[in-house]
Each structure stands twice: as C-alpha cells, then as structure tokens.
Design a protein around this nucleic acid. Structure first.
Length: 955
RNA sequence: GGCCGGAUGGCGAAAUUGGCAGACGCACGGGACUUAAAAUCCCGUGGAGGGAAACCUCCGUGCGGGUUCGAUCCCCGCUCCGGCCACCA
C-alpha cells in the first residue's frame, strides 16, 4: 500500500535544488523584493531541536509562496558561532574551539538541508570566519570613530567634535583624551558584573537576579577597565522609532520597558546644616561632573559639593520630601559624612560594596541605611532634611540620589517606617482612589497614585499633573530644577574575558617603562582582521584576566612605526556578530566593503524577521543600535533594520501525566483532591506530605473524561506539558522525526500545531496525523499497487464539475489568504478539506490536482515536486505562478442564512444571493417553523443583516 | 510587586474580530476488509434530557456583573496559568 516514501523523494529533490541552485537570490532584486530573515542559530553541540524548524519553516513557506507570486526573494542562513560552550569544551578536552565549532556547524547544516529549506546556501556566513569578523571589527572602528551630537540627535565623525578652547589650549594629549571621552566606544573603570565561576564579566542583561543568565552562578560587582558602547545616547531614538515598526505590541512594550524612559525633573537640594542658615547661600553655577558618561547624556551631572541633584518623576510631592538618600557609591559620601557618623558610614558602604546583586535583591525586603550626619535644604519648604545613605538607591540610575517622599513612595515609606523618619502626606487621594484615605492623610499608609495637592503652600488643591508643571517651572526660574528624562537603559558593557570571540582592533600605547598610558590607537581598517592567536591555554584563574593575556609575545606586543604597543586582550561579546549579519548576507563575498552600497540600498530593510522571543530585548536592541550608528554615518540607507518582526512561540515537550503520592507511598484518592465548584481539582492541604510523581502511560486508564491511575479509579491525574530539557528527557530530535515520518511531515506538523506565536506542546501522534494527510494526498493522485508511482486513473484531463470547481477555488482563496496572514494551521486545514472532498470523487480533474500541488508546495515542497513531476512537468514548481482565484467559481445563487427568535437559532432559510432585507424577512416569516413560533407573538423588532442572519425580537 | 499575554470538547485548536460556537486534526467508539493484527476505508463523537424514528428541548467559550436584538469577541470587577522585568525614584 502506498504510504509514500519520503526517504527516497526528499533527498532527491534536495539534490535537485542544490544542483540547479534553484533558490539563488539575485545580486540585485527585481521590482518587488522580499528579504526574509531567520534569527541565525548558535550551532550547539546538541544539534537542532524541534524549536528551530518552527520559525525556519514559517519563513521558508513565506519565501516559496512569494517566489511563486513573482517576488525577488532573499533568504539566507548562517551561524552565530562565537560563544562560551565551545570554549568550555576546549578547556575540558583540549579541542580548539574552531574545530568544535566547525563540527557543530556541519551538523546544523546537514540538519537544515535535510528539512528542505530554500536558503541560498552560497550566502552562508559564520561570525567566527575571519572574513566575517574582519567587518565586525571594522564596525567597532566606526563606533570608536563616532560621537553623538546631542543638538542634531545623531552620531557624527569624531573629527567633527568641537573641542573646547581650554582643552584645545592644553595640547595633543588633552584633545585625544577629550575625544576618547566622547566616543560611542569608550573605556570605563565603572563597576562591572564579575562572575568568578564563568571567569568573565557580564553585561547587565546577562545577570538575572544577581545570578548569571548562563549557569546561574553568583555575580559580584568589582571595578574593572572595560569597553563600553554608548547605547544610552540612542535611547530616545530606539524608543521613538519603535512606533513605525510592524512588530507586535508585546515586543514593543518589552523594549520600551527595557529602555525605561521616565519623564520628570531634576531638582537641586543645597547642602546645609541646622546650625548654619540656609538663607543667603549663593547659587553655584559651575556644575562639575562626577561621571563622564552621564554628562555626555546631557543631564544628571551632580552640581558642586554645595548641592545634591536628584531625579524625580513626582516633583509635585516636593513638600512631602522629608529626607534624602544617596547611594553608597555616591561621590559625595565622604564629604557629607560627619565625624560622628564616619565609622558607621564606612562600615555600611564597605558592606554594600561586598554584596553581590543577589544579596541586595534578596535583602530587598528589609531596608537598610545609615545617617550621614548632614542635612540638605528642601527648596520649597526651606527646611533642613537629613541625608541618609542606603543601598535601595542605585548609583547607576538617575543621579544616584533621591528625595524621599515616604507618604507617596512605597520604598521611601518602608525606609521611613524602619528608621522612624517623618511622613508628610501632600497628595489627597480623594474618596474613590481605592485606598484608605484617612490612613494616607494620617501618614500611616502610602499612596502612590495621582490626586490633589495638600500641605503644599501655594500649590494646594492643584491636580498632580498641574502641580508637577508649576513647581518645576517655579524652581526652574530660581535655577534649582529643570525638566529631565531618564532611562533605565545603561551603556552596553562590550568586553568579555573570553578567548573565543572577536579581538578588538585596538592597541594600547605604552610608556617608556612599558606601562599603558591610557591612550590607544586603532588598527587601520586595511590591516583587519585582527585574528586570534594560536593558544593552548584556556584556563581562567578566578580573576578577571582574559585568556589572551597568555598569547605569544609577537601577537601581544606588536611594533608599529617603531613603537611597541600592547594589544587589547578582551574580546567582544557574542552579540557583536549578530548585530549586523543581515547586512553581510546581502554581499557575503565582498572583500572591499562590508556591503556594497547599491546592493544594500536595493535589499534593505529586512521585510520579515522571525525568531524566538528570548531575543526580544537584547539582540534586537543591540542590532537596532548598531544599525542606527551605521545609518548616521551614511553606511546604510534605512533607519531601522527589521521592518516586520514575528516571534514564534515555544514548543513544549509531550503532555505528561502527574499523580500524587503521600509520604507513606499511597496514592492520594479523589477524596484528597479538593474541587472547588468551578476550577481545577487541587490538592487539599491536609498537613500530610504529598509528592507529585510522573506517571507512565502504561499506568494510565481513561474513564469517561478523566485520566486515572490504573487500579485506582478514584485517583485523578493532572496533565501538563513542560519545556523541553535534557534533564527532563522530553527533548524531541528532528533527525528521528524525519527518519520516521519525513521532512514534509515534520514541517507540516510544526505549522499545524497551532498559531505560530503560541506556546504549544509536541505530540508524535499529531505528526502521524499530518503524515496521514500527506499519504492521502499521495493516494489521491497516484495509482495504488504499482511498483513505480503512476498517475491514479481517477486523475483525468477533464473540466471540473461546478461543485469541484467551487471547492477548488474556495481552497485557493482560503490558502492564499491564510498564507498572507501567516495562519499556516488553517491553511493546512483547508487543504485537508479539499483532499477529503476530492478523495470521494471518482473523477479528479488533473487541473485541480495540479493546483493543489502548487498550493501545498510552500509547506511540503518535496512531495509537491514529486507529484508535480508525476503530473507531467519537467521543471521545478518553485517558480510556477501561484494559482489564481476566480470569484465567479465560488458564486452561489442561493445562500443559507440562520433565523433567530430572541437570539436563539430556530431555523435556516435559503434565499437568493444578494437578497434585500425585505425579501429575506419575507422568506423568514414564511418558513414553516418560524411562522408557527411567531404565531400569537408580538414582534417588537426585526433585525436583518443581509447575507448573515435574521433575528425576530418577540415577547 | 509592576508590565505583557492567555483561559473554548478527553487533547491541539477554528470561528475572515459583534451574527449558525467547536472547521481541521489527534484520541476514542462502532462497522468494513483480513485467518488475525497492522495499515486502509466508512460512520459516530461538547454535555444533559426526551423520542420507535427523521428529530426536538435545555445547558455550554475560566468566574461575577454590564452594554446590545444578539457577546468566545466590547466594558467593569475577580480567579487561575504562562512570560518578561523586578528597590529604576
């Protein structure tokens, strides 16, 4: 019996496509271009898992579909191949990372080719290839050569940076240092996230709750000289430009939250002491920065030691600011600390410095802090307020100092309560804010919402919004405040202490004694790439020392123009290569440029980008940032790289059944399972220990609706799907699926499971189900019981009957629409309906069969090509015109519409297509059943929606 | 704690976003073919009740309200599940 044999068909067509370069994209597209991009994979040693082909199949369907509709399609694939696992493998086995990486790429390439994706393999790139990272290094040089012009809101060449007169007068070194302080790539001594277990520094994004994202190891903060990228300069544009993108709102929200724009004001609090009069203190105009990068952003510089600058989103609550808090790392800590408090402050700050982020987070419940002994002056009340130090204020956000308004901020309230500081309510929540108004007004509850000002001098009875505005305006006139915007986004820590990454094209200048001067020179673009040296030692030493420190002297200390330099030994993070790979695909062999200007202009932007939601923040933000810099520098033609973005949902493992066992080993009975009348059964808290146990399918019985444990008919089992993981043993390997069911079945199943963006559980029985569909399609067109596949005698060169034609064109229309809106599961369902119908026909017009093959071909290309050939064609169907929909074919003279009485379906009537409401109502009233039901009823209203339904409202 | 998603048969899901709830598939039940099983084909399948039967009635999209002739869809208030961020002033 002909179950078709994918093991024969699929490799045959894969070879055909490769041999004929069927899917080679043109250098320059025709009139209608389409750039469809997958998030290229990290080629791990485990090979592909079934999550990869989900997105890849979706993009492949789009590409094949649009090629048939006449578009020039760019569909490349490559490898994000730098990364820690290959390096760790090297440490364990001594195998150089390049060898491991090449092997893994080989596996991934084989697996992807086995699935029949229509990539243009001639464009394959790997981030680890020197011909590739040469350009990654080149872009770093662009970043290094760019400063951000705040006036124009864009990046410009460093040569155009205006040099202040005093700097200019100080000469060459001063100018270089000034420029270095303004570059988009700069060095910083700021505290970094050092992970001893991984032996590397991590970006903020790679630290989750004080633990490393990879491996969950503790992370501590230590100061270290690092390369930073000034992504914060672009925060505003990265946020604003989201508006034009065709991305889901949830991803946009994710990015917005990450950028974390807050509007408010900066307010200066002059430092005074109760013994000193705050009056008559001169306004200090000269503001000195205490952190360069914040000054560069144009705000948040802390003024002289005469004042503490804070950022607040609620200037309206200024009258309620009863104390101030500065971060333990704040530059003013030493100056503000009075002798009496010195010991306590020193101890507190040292403890805070030792704490890892995890400790700080874990201890978040209990607020800690210490008084400095100093006071500041509240600029609106002129009263002195105490200045405290507490680690709930972050040095890295805003100005590293806050005004504390305990009545209207939860954290301040907790702190004030713990240290018995005064709580002064200044916002009346009103009666319907959903809070205990009396408690708020009495200063024993916190209210963070908006309301009406009270106890606020001249600002009483203003709304929160008006009050913000007026207080800010008034203080601005006195030079004590200004509107300000702050971002949660921090500058991007761009160096790693890894071997297996891109070396920086940077040389450190050495003085006569061989010590670094702090000045650098770049490796000229013509001398790129800076390749990795041969290196046998991959050990880390529990200190933040990069492996490249052990490189051969000749690599480490190059001599340029007779002068000895030391190479930068940090390497770039894994994100670097993936920030721009979409550009290189367009012109992968270009040895003179990153991408030819003409080619870039013709193909960009990426029209559709599909990948996992795990990259919603980091990769997409970084890539957009680099792209904007390249755009500012005139190297790319679009402001954004990815026009449309779709996140495929996660694929979970197969459903698992769980039972519950008591401590004594007995299974819990149904009596132990509490069922509240509506919800799921829950375990009753009886005080006895109960353990969840995975139940094998051989232990399961089904009675009626529920799964029960065999032999224990009262024990109900919970069914749930879990994330695929090695430890759980529920990982599905695509190789096995292809071997058993074929690539077409795997592709089809991945698309049939549900909407692309949904999280959904795997089911092998489901794969078997779609395989059954493919078998039916095969049988619909091929003869049974023949050695060689032959056309089924039912397939004849005849005109379709009107009914066959209607089904055919309904299918064309439905599938086309569904593919356009990426609703692949319903497109497949429509082709199943087609097949169910035509299998019942004794005569199957060849034209209809050919059309179905074309409709199916984007989803299941191998079987489609085979059937296409069987139907008498010599060439691939990849560029056959997409079937045209004929509306006339689906036209029906009569349509059936439902008739309701009081919204309940009571009958169906047949009316002529396009009948008027009057005619429809007439037909409805004349229907036997309806007439009977309407007898002796008062009809209050008749609603007729032409072509849809009729509703009689009676009673 | 904040933000963003979800919740529809035994299961995965449809319903072209206010108009016939459950398309399509899985699983399951019955039948055909077969010595038998597998495969394949045909029929049935949301729940409850009624009828000899074609059929009929009622209930049904997490829960409680609301808007509407009409709500899976819109509004208000909850419950549960998932994801992301978490002391960001």
């Amino acid at each position: 019996m002909p179950r078709y044999n994918p093991a024969q068909i699929e490799p045959k067509w894969q070879e055909y496509w490769a041999r004929n370069k069927t899917f080679a994209a043109p250098q320059l597209p025709g009139a209608k271009k389409l750039y469809v991009l997958d998030m290229f994979p990290y080629p791990s040693g485990d090979g592909l898992h079934v999550g990869h082909p989900e997105g890849y199949t979706a993009t492949d369907i789009i590409c094949r579909f649009e090629r048939m509709r006449g578009k020039s399609v760019m569909h490349p694939m490559g490898w994000d191949a730098f990364g820690l696992p290959a390096e760790q493998h090297a440490k364990k086995t001594g195998t150089p990372p390049r060898i491991t990486t090449e092997k893994n790429i080989g596996t991934f390439r084989r697996q992807l080719q086995m699935l029949g994706f229509s990539y243009d393999w001639d464009r394959e790139v790997a981030t680890t290839d020197p011909d590739y990272f040469r350009w990654t290094q080149w872009i770093f040089l662009v970043l290094f050569d760019t400063w951000f012009d705040r006036e124009l809101g864009r990046g410009r060449p460093i040569s155009e940076l205006p040099i202040p007169a005093d700097v200019d007068a100080s000469g060459g070194q001063a100018i270089r240092r000034y420029q270095d302080a303004h570059r988009l790539a700069y060095q910083s001594e700021a505290p970094v996230n050092w992970c001893p277990a991984l032996g590397t520094v991590l970006s903020n994004e790679e630290v989750i709750g004080g633990l490393s994202e990879r491996g969950s190891h503790p992370v501590v903060r230590i100061p270290l000289r690092q390369w930073m990228l000034r992504i914060t300069a672009y925060a505003d544009r990265l946020e604003q430009d989201l508006a034009e993108l065709d991305w889901s709102d949830s991803i946009k929200t994710l990015q917005r939250n990450w950028i974390g724009r807050s509007t408010g004001a900066e307010v200066d609090f002059y430092i005074g002491h109760p013994d000193e009069s705050p009056e008559g203190r001169p306004v200090a105009p000269a503001f000195k920065t205490w952190r360069n990068e914040r000054a560069e952003r144009g705000f948040a510089a802390t003024p002289t030691s005469d004042a503490i600058r804070v950022f607040t989103t609620r200037p309206d609550t200024l009258f309620g600011a009863t104390y101030m808090v500065i971060a333990p790392e704040h530059a003013l800590v030493p100056r503000l600390t009075r002798p009496a408090q010195a010991a306590a402050v020193r101890e507190y700050c040292e403890r805070a410095a030792r704490k890892s982020d995890l400790d700080r987070t874990e201890l978040a419940k209990e607020k800690t802090g210490v008084f400095t002994g100093s006071f500041a002056v509240n600029p609106v009340t002129s009263r002195p307020i105490p200045i405290w130090i507490a680690d709930y204020v972050l040095a890295s956000y805003g100005t590293g100092a806050i005004m504390a308004v305990p009545a209207h901020d939860t954290r301040d309230f907790e702190f004030a309560t713990a240290f018995e500081l005064p709580i002064q309510p200044v916002v009346d929540p009103g009666d319907d804010a959903g809070v205990d108004r009396d408690a708020v007004l009495g200063g024993v509850a916190v209210f963070t919402g908006e309301g009406t000002s009270i106890h606020s001098g001249p600002y009483v009875s203003l709304s929160t919004a008006d009050c913000k505005q007026q207080i800010t305006d008034d203080l601005a006139k006195r030079g004590l405040a200004r509107p300000a915007i702050n971002y949660k986004l921090r500058d991007w820590l761009f160096s790693r202490q890894h071997f297996w990454g891109e070396p920086f094209p940077i040389l450190h200048e050495l003085d006569a004694a061989g010590k670094p001067t702090g000045l650098v020179r770049t490796v000229p673009p013509g001398e790129l790439p800076v390749d990795l040296p041969e290196l046998a030692v991959f050990e880390t030493h529990g200190s933040p020392e990069p492996p490249l420190e052990h490189a051969p002297e000749s690599w480490l200390y190059p001599v340029v123009d007779g002068r000895r330099y030391k190479r930068e030994t940090n390497t770039m993070p894994q994100w670097a290569g993936s920030c721009w790979y979409y550009l290189r695909f367009l012109d992968p062999k270009n040895s003179r440029e990153l991408v030819s200007r003409q080619i870039e202009h013709a193909w960009m932007p990426v029209d559709i980008y599909i990948g996992g939601a795990e990259h919603a923040v980091l990769h997409l933000l970084y890539a957009r940032f680099w792209h904007k810099v390249l755009y500012d520098r005139g190297m790319v033609s679009t402001g954004e790289p990815f026009q449309k973005l779709v996140n495929q949902g996660m694929i979970l493992g197969e459903m698992e059944l769980t039972g519950y066992k008591q401590a004594d080993g007995a299974w819990t009975s149904a009596a132990m399972v509490e069922t509240d009348d509506d919800a799921q059964p829950k375990l009753k808290q009886t005080g006895e220990a109960v353990e969840a146990v995975r139940v094998g399918f051989d232990q399961v019985e089904k009675t009626g609706e529920a799964f029960v444990l065999k032999g224990h008919p009262t024990v109900r089992l919970d069914s749930r799907a879990y994330k695929m993981s090695k430890s759980r043993g529920n990982v599905v390997n695509p190789d096995n699926v292809v071997r058993e069911y074929g690539a077409d079945a795997l592709r089809l199943y991945e698309m049939f499971m549900g909407p692309l963006e949904a999280t959904k559980p795997w089911s092998m029985e489901g794969v078997n189900g779609v395989r059954g569909f493919l078998d039916r399609v095969w049988r619909m067109m091929t003869a049974e019981r023949s050695e060689r596949a032959e056309l089924n005698p039912a397939v004849r060169d005849v005109e379709p009957t009107p009914e066959q034609n209607r089904v055919l064109h309904k299918t064309i229309h439905g599938v086309t629409q569904d593919l356009e809106r990426m609703s692949f599961n319903t497109a497949i369902a429509k082709m199943m309906e087609f097949t169910n119908f035509y299998l019942k026909c004794d005569v199957r017009p060849k034209s209809a069969m050919q059309t179905l093959v074309l409709l199916l071909s984007p989803l299941a290309p191998h079987i489609s090509e085979e059937l296409w050939q069987l139907l008498g064609h010599q060439q691939t169907l990849a560029y056959e015109p997409w079937p045209a929909f004929d509306p006339a074919a689906v036209h029906e003279d009569e349509i059936e519409i439902p008739v309701q009485i009081n919204g309940k379906l009571r009958a169906r009537i047949r009316v002529p297509q396009g009948a008027s409401p009057q005619v429809i109502e007439h037909h409805a009233r004349n229907d036997e059943r309806i007439a009977a039901l309407l007898e002796n009823q008062t009809i209050r209203k008749v609603v007729v929606v032409p072509g849809r339904m009729v509703n009689f409202v009676v009673g």
